[in-house]
Amino acid sequence: MHRTLISSDLLEANLTNQTWVIIDCRFDLSDTTSGEQSYKENHIPGAGYAHLDRDLSGAPTGRNGRHPLPVIAVMEDTFGKFGINHETQVVAYDESNGIFASRLWWMLRYLGHDAVAVLDGGITTWNQEAKPLQTAVERRAPVVFTANPHPDMLVGASQVQALLSDSTHRILDARSPDRYAGGTEPLDSVAGHIPGAMNHHYANNVTEDGSFIEPVKLRLIYDQLLHDVQPSRLVCYCGSGVTACHNLLAMEHAGLSGAKLYAGSWSEWCSDPGRPVARKQR
């Protein structure tokens, strides 16, 4: 079973393995059609396509974040249509660094499906190694996906607010340092961060080519952020519950299990003017 990252060589060796399901998660927040178009132009053989807005998110209301989690029954239906059941090894990939693939990775783990891994380096590494591609749109036969949810992996806004005065927990923001500081906010209505949150930009989990830093080095990074707090007492968030999953994947790859996701993230938090906002002094 592969549970965090998988190499391009191992994936290539299993392209004809019928117990493996490959899902292309390429996406661009500024052009929500580009990922699916890229998939139609070429993709890893056998891969289906998961659209962040359509397949990996529920309906936004303006108060629940830009990419709220779908309800469990909808997630079961979606993953069943991708051909995923309890016997399936899932491999998710995106353009390179895994930020969108990690959302699917986290969702499946939340539903109790641990046999899911992200392609290290994404399709960029795959292409650089001149591995095979195809253009035909893939649709596997649907199966029944039965969830066994782990609610302890998820927290809501009220739980986060209760942690603001709790020194035994940590809150970690995955956005860029400038967005965290409140210097700019290109996507949400309010700039800043959750009071007391630390910042670790997801981009610092990977090398320049988009592949993950080796686990030993990731462990050192996150150990410094945790300050002897157990991973289970860490809540990860970002703008809308996507790149926070990248930090959760990096931690899992480093052997630090148990951190939680605040799925609504900043876009949900800042939608309520009654919630406190912090900005970093310049």
Rank of each mutant, 00 (worst) to 15 (best):
E76I: 04
G80P: 05
L104F: 05
Y110M: 12
N64G: 07
Q89D: 10
A101Q: 12
G98L: 00
N85D: 15
T88V: 08
E87T: 14
A73S: 14
L111V: 05
G80L: 10
G62H: 10
E95Q: 13
F79R: 01
G112N: 06
D77T: 13
V90I: 12
T61S: 15
W106E: 01
F100A: 11
G83R: 01
V91M: 13
M107Q: 11
D114Y: 08
F79T: 03
N64K: 06
G83M: 08
N97G: 12
G65I: 04
R109F: 02
W106P: 00
T88Q: 06
N85H: 06
L111F: 04
V91N: 12
W105P: 10
K81P: 03
N64S: 09
V91D: 09
P70S: 14
N97A: 15
P70L: 12
G98D: 03
E87V: 11
G80H: 01
T78P: 05
N97D: 15
F79D: 03
R63A: 09
H67M: 09
T88L: 08
G62Y: 08
Q89R: 08
G83C: 10
G83I: 05
T61Y: 09
H86C: 06
M107C: 07
H86Y: 03
V91Y: 07
K81D: 14
F79W: 13
E87R: 14
Y93S: 01
N64E: 09
D114T: 07
Y110K: 03
E76A: 09
W106Q: 00
H67D: 05
V71M: 09
T78R: 14
A73Y: 00
W105M: 07
Q89L: 12
G62D: 12
G98Y: 04
T88C: 09
H113F: 13
H86P: 02
R63G: 02
N97V: 04
L108A: 04
W106V: 00
